[in-house]
Design a protein around this nucleic acid. Structure first.
Length: 260
DNA sequence: ATGGTGGCGCGGCCA
């Protein structure tokens, strides 16, 4: 039995719904984490999602942020925030699906190093570390997936020159990512050999996708016991080539694991 | 390039 898990920042679910439904039909993931749904809960297109054969939980807001998790099996123990962080921004969605804890996150962008938004990102990452520590203590099967807005290494950036002082690449951001790895999570993409210059996000501007100027900032982290049975991880760049694409491509990981 | 594109929603904000 194979378990297929994916993450995709769709940059507006309303605009991307036709693409999402096409993608679900062809890819048939068991679990899909969406970010930047940009839609309020009453407006969420759950009929379309269920018609495609998926259960869904979501936590949205108007115009910004918003996360949703689709799955073949129903979700329980849903969490829409992190302990110790009163945050009106909808960036977190935890759920237990078929015995696996699935934590879908949309880490703040940070905008400019030293800005207020950057401070918010770092304190958010601090809360995330505590939360993941706690979640790992009670779930042996756990995924931490989503848009991290962090490029973990220089090889995850098309132009790593002076990357140390660039947003997504700064030492505090990369340190926070490594702290999650130290907790026992594995970056499933790096379990396997990958082509150089592999990215999951490309700026809409300056024909960045065409020139492959991007970053790998969307990640599927798995607890050790799931990483042990991970059989592949890839970025589906085909979605970025379509008309009116999201600026992010879906990331997919497959596991030799049976959901129950 | 102190720029550039896209989404939301109709003036900026956010990415």
């Amino acid at each position: 039995m194979m378990l297929k898990v994916a993450t995709w920042n769709v940059n507006s679910l309303k605009i991307r719904l036709p693409q999402l439904l096409d993608w679900l039909y062809t890819q048939q993931p068991d679990i899909l984490a969406l970010q930047e749904t940009k839609i309020t809960d009453p407006c969420f297109p759950k009929l379309h999602i269920s018609a495609a054969g998926y259960q869904v939980v979501f936590s949205g807001q108007k115009a910004y942020n918003g996360v949703a998790t689709l799955s073949r099996l129903p979700a329980s123990d849903v969490a829409t925030g992190m302990p110790g962080l009163e945050d009106p921004q909808r960036r977190v969605l935890g759920a237990t699906i078929g015995g696996i804890r699935v934590l879908n996150i949309y880490i703040p962008n940070g905008q400019i190093i030293g800005s207020e938004k950057y401070s918010y990102k770092l304190s958010w990452l601090d809360k995330l570390y505590s939360w993941i520590t706690m979640e790992l203590s009670c779930h042996r099967w756990l995924f931490l997936i989503g848009d991290f807005n962090i490029a973990p290494e220089d090889r995850d950036v098309s132009n790593p020159i002076s990357s140390d002082e660039r947003i997504f690449c700064s030492s505090p951001e990369r340190f926070a990512f490594q702290q999650l790895i130290k907790l026992g999570l594995r970056d499933t993409f790096r379990i396997f050999p990958q082509k150089e210059q592999s990215f999951s996000w490309w700026d809409y501007r300056s024909a960045a996708f065409h020139r492959n100027l991007g970053m790998r900032i969307d990640h599927i982290l798995a607890s050790q016991e799931l990483a042990d049975v991970c059989i592949s991880c890839y970025i589906d760049e085909s979605q970025r080539r379509l008309a009116r694409p999201s600026d992010h491509a879906p990331v997919v990981s497959e596991f030799d694991f049976r959901l129950y």
